[in-house]
Design a binder for these strands. Structure first.
Length: 948
RNA sequence: GGGCCUAUAGCUCAGUUGCGGUUAGAGCGCACGCCUGAUAAGCGUGAGGUCGUAAGUUCAACUCUUACUAGGCCCA
């Protein structure tokens, strides 16, 4: 044992022979709960234990009969490893499920995966290479199934590693046979309701993948296109109204960045509100928007022009121009999407090659003309360019226009253009026969909009406006894809009468086969087999039914999860209480699920929709390979542990973008250590505490204990309120703040004396332990949804905990305060907050005294407080409490002070005080400096009593 | 280009759910010091913000309006 210089001098121990080992008489903290978490190693052990004990199923059992809380999992795509965004999403869901469970609900969580679709098929294509040509569609599908299954397993392990609890052995999987059957069945319901139709319509088309693409499947990237100005000779004579045009050859001048669509031109659009002019030069007149005309003439290199007439755009509606290349008319139309940003103010319109063009075409009764085949080649009907690929034909079109003298100008332009999300090549708009779900039939759009307004709670609330706008403006849902890996559109075509046919009996027969054999049956079996021999056309009686080739958009698959999962599983319930996904899902899963449910059930599948933002780097930039700022979850887990990743999710306000960086993670691991150490201190001081026998009633505690218990109750109330509102960052900050400010900085520091030196089973020590026990027991449960691993570890070490529940996750949250705090409690709080404020003020002087080497430890100090102020007298009345709080050896009072330690200027509300070094001797046991300690008496009176 | 959203100390968050009012708060980190009986811990003190920028409304704006800048999601 080593003594300080000081105590050796005071206690000539030779007198007694050997130094008394007072340290051995103290109750110092003792615990197996390690300071160092070693999370990357410890977490897998806990996971193994939870799995072995079947924790998720124990939770189900424990909650049996309670109200259910259904958070319906949005299925991630079974392709690739998880990334920070998917990790964030799953961890947030885990917070919600665990906190709802601990609030006394039965929070079932069935995770799912989305398994069909182009991205997987594309990967499989790449893997198969030329082999694919020799394979049947069914063979390709088998490969896809294996591929999806592999990544499903990978992701499942990755999610479990995060500490996410759920029914992992039996997730929902969109490629499972029963699920596939439900998809087909839901589609059939739409079909039988008349909501599904087949029509020619321009859709995004990838020439390379030879498929239609969903809007979600195109991405925008820069693309260089030829931009050309083309003159369309006007056939109608406008000179009656505009005499300035008399005798002139008049042209409508358009601008386009897709020359290859010129052959499909059927109209020229003007804006109804813009001003137009006809510009005259050398016997010709060019019609353009007046604001753009000078610029354009400049571009064309034409000088010496004048304005021949101001033209009202309404007069352009219905006029006929001649197509520059073909013997065909092009109609003058009006459209309000025409802009003056670039071009001529007159827009080339090809209804078969653009959505807006298509809609304009509908209004004017134009054909949906699209002379391009599946591979993006012109068909025979276009003449000159037949057989050429459209992008390559750009040049030929330009040349031809030049040849006929219709080309006024051309240049290269780089602009944002849609590309295929898989092959990254530019896509086109092309009209083909597709299957659609009508937004108007059965009032699907109107009913959905009503439901968005009336029946669903959107958090944050702007989500409502966002999805409302999308549903309000979206076109009909194109549900067909020309691929293999998906659920087929189970419609038959009668080769005899040429009609598409599907009766309820037929669809039911097909779905029954799907349930047993999966959707593969569509590709492997004959119509007769699928229809149980009843394969006669219901219209003409012919027996030559052919199966539709198109498969369904994958968004329809996941949109059906509410039917295939919520309704199908007995442990779940329809509708769900909550959907929680990233804000991009307003156009994705929230959207498709709503349409599917509205179409078949007439009601939304969720009561509440919660969204989170996107993970960005420390500078707020999105994560991308090209920026090199991607942080994979695995890296964080390996370095800090999943617990720190979870803490990151909890600490950030997820309603907006969520930043992550090394600095942020470092900061969080510091915060983690602080919380862990606080819990460790609590446990360490409970080593000899048996809650069954040693508890002290609050009435028998001191004020300080009762005060901190009131603070603890505040913590419980606020953290639980935060969980209720899904405001996890508030829960985390509050808990952390409590550890730092209320515990470390105040209560724990102050009660060390009691815990260590007071009589082991005396009331003051047992009171402090009672408080610590209650604190640990409540805090561990408050933190369990977030710090799931650490809380379990604490639970293992907490006296009496295991007797209550085998796992902290099986316990319930602490009780909230009933009603408002009582008057007594409020008074107690006010008083102690005042004492603490004065302590802060005294600390200023203590620091000064330390810097002056007057004292080191605060127990070296003698504090003299002036009683002239109200606060001074307040302290005098509460001297004992304040002395314990300030941890000084002497506290005395004086009427006035000559030279206070810190000048009280501008702090007149604070008492003046003086800090000196006390003359009293140090008790070698409790280290307080006491008057009775000296050569006669080795230790202080309190210590003697404690040891008695 | 359009819609929606975000912008408070180096970092993470508060700033009193819709309604503007005294020197804008906390913790972390940092600096300086203390302790060595929470010790690869703990305590204290302190320095950090023209509340993204610029106008406007007002007696008064972090809080309201507009524009701009940066960033995010969705769409074109």
């Amino acid at each position: 044992m080593v003594h300080s210089e000081d105590s050796r001098h005071l206690f000539p121990l030779a007198v007694r022979g050997l130094p008394m080992d007072y340290k051995a008489t103290l109750n110092l903290p003792k615990t197996d709960f390690p300071m160092k978490a070693n999370l990357p190693k410890r977490e897998p052990q806990l996971l193994e234990r939870w799995e072995k004990e079947g924790l998720y199923h124990q939770l189900r059992q424990a909650a049996e009969g309670k109200d259910k809380y259904i958070l319906h999992d949005g299925p991630p795509y079974a392709n690739g490893h998880i990334h920070m965004g998917t990790a964030l999403n799953k961890v947030l869901k885990d917070f919600i499920v665990k906190s709802r469970q601990m609030s006394g609900l039965d929070a079932v969580y069935v995770p799912g995966w989305d398994c069909h679709g182009l991205p997987i098929e594309h990967e499989v294509d790449k893997k198969l290479g030329p082999k694919k040509a020799a394979m049947s569609q069914a063979d390709v599908r088998r490969e896809c199934r294996v591929y999806a299954g592999k990544f499903l397993d990978i992701q499942r392990e990755e999610f479990k590693r995060l500490g996410v609890l759920g029914h992992w052995e039996e997730p929902y999987i969109t490629m499972n046979y029963p699920y596939e059957a439900v998809i087909a069945r839901e589609l059939a319901r739409f079909y039988h309701n008349g909501g599904v139709y087949r029509s020619k319509k321009p859709i995004y088309w990838c020439n390379d993948c030879v498929t239609a693409l969903a809007e979600a499947e195109v991405e925008y990237a820069d693309h260089t296109s030829p931009s050309i100005y083309v003159a369309f000779p006007l056939l109608d004579d406008l000179s009656a109204k505009y005499p300035g045009l008399k005798g002139l050859e008049v042209f409508l001048v358009i601008w386009t960045t897709t020359p290859w669509t010129i052959p499909a031109n059927l109209a020229v659009a003007a804006h109804p509100d813009f001003e137009y002019v006809a510009v005259k030069r050398q016997g010709k007149a060019y019609v353009m928007a007046s604001r753009l005309a000078p610029l354009c003439m400049d571009t064309f290199g034409l000088e010496g022009w004048e304005i021949a007439a101001q033209i009202d755009p309404k007069d352009l509606e219905g006029v006929k121009a001649k197509h520059p290349l073909y013997d065909r008319e092009s109609l003058g139309v009006l459209a309000d999407y025409v802009t003056l940003e670039a071009g001529t103010g007159l827009v080339h319109t090809a209804p078969g090659h653009g959505r807006e063009d298509y809609e304009t075409g509908l209004r004017y009764g134009l054909e949906v003309y699209s002379p391009v085949d599946d591979h993006g080649r012109f068909t025979e009907e276009v003449g000159f360019f037949a057989g050429q690929k459209v992008f390559e034909a750009n040049e030929a079109v330009v040349a031809k226009l030049k040849e006929v003298g219709a080309l006024l100008g051309s240049e290269k332009i780089t602009h944002s253009y849609p590309h295929c999300w898989r092959c990254k090549k530019p896509v086109i708009f092309r009209a083909t026969a597709q299957w659609f779900i009508s937004m108007e039939e059965n009032r699907l759009r109107a009913k959905s909009l009503e439901a968005i307004r009336r029946d669903v709670q959107w958090v944050p609330k702007w989500g409502r406006e966002r999805i409302y706008g999308m549903i309000e403006n979206r076109p009909d849902w194109c549900i067909s894809r020309q691929r293999s890996w998906g659920v087929p559109i189970i419609v038959f075509r009668c080769e005899d009468c040429g009609q598409n046919v599907l009766t309820p009996e037929m669809s039911e027969s097909v779905c029954a086969v799907f349930e047993k054999e999966g959707a593969d049956a569509w590709f492997e079996r004959t119509p007769a087999e699928l229809l149980g021999g009843k394969d006669a056309c219901p219209l003409c009686g012919g027996r030559n039914l052919a199966k539709e080739n198109d498969i369904l958009d994958v968004w329809f698959d996941s949109g059906c999860s509410q039917a295939a999962v919520l309704k199908a599983r007995p442990e779940l319930r329809w509708p769900a209480d909550l959907y929680l996904e990233g804000s991009d899902q307003h156009r994705g899963w929230f959207h498709s699920s709503l349409l599917c449910a509205m179409g078949t059930e007439g009601a939304p599948p969720y009561k509440m929709v919660l969204t989170h933002g996107f993970v960005v780097d420390g500078e707020g930039r999105k994560m991308s390979k090209s920026l090199g700022n991607v942080i994979p979850p695995q890296k964080v887990i390996d370095r800090y542990g999943a617990e720190v990743l979870r803490l990151w999710v909890a600490a950030e306000d997820y309603t907006v973008d969520i930043r992550i960086s090394d600095d942020i993670l470092k900061q969080l691991s510091e915060a983690y250590r602080r919380i862990r150490n606080t819990m460790r201190f609590l446990l360490g001081n409970l080593f000899d505490f048996d809650p069954e026998k040693d508890q002290v009633a609050p009435a028998d505690m001191g004020e300080m204990d009762r005060y901190i218990l009131a603070r603890l109750q505040d913590l419980v109330d606020e953290v639980l309120a935060a969980y209720d509102e899904f405001a996890f960052h508030r829960a985390f900050h509050r808990l952390h703040n409590f550890c730092v400010v209320d515990l470390s900085g105040f209560y724990l520091d102050v009660i060390k004396d009691r815990l260590y030196t007071h009589k082991t089973d005396g009331p003051s020590r047992r009171a402090a332990q009672t408080v610590l026990h209650r604190m640990a027991s409540q805090m561990v449960r408050l933190m369990a949804p977030v710090l799931s691993f650490t809380a379990e570890e604490v639970w293992d070490h907490l006296p009496g905990a295991k007797a209550q529940a085998a796992s902290v996750h099986l316990s319930l949250f602490p009780e909230r305060r009933q009603g408002q705090p009582g008057q007594e409690e409020s008074a107690l709080k006010e008083k102690w907050q005042k004492l603490l404020a004065i302590r802060d003020w005294v600390n200023v002087g203590m620091d000064k005294a330390r810097k002056e080497k007057l004292i080191g430890n605060s127990l070296d100090a003698k504090l003299t407080v002036e009683t002239a102020s109200e606060e001074g007298r307040f302290l005098q009345a509460n001297a004992e409490a304040f002395q314990e709080l300030a941890m000084v050896s002497e506290l005395v009072f004086a009427g006035s002070l000559e030279a206070p330690t810190v000048s009280g200027e501008e702090k007149e509300m604070k008492p003046l005080y003086l800090i000196e070094r006390t003359e009293q001797e140090k008790c070698p046991r409790c280290w307080k400096r006491r008057p009775e300690v000296g050569p006669e008496q080795e230790i202080c009176r309190d210590c003697r009593e404690a040891l008695a």
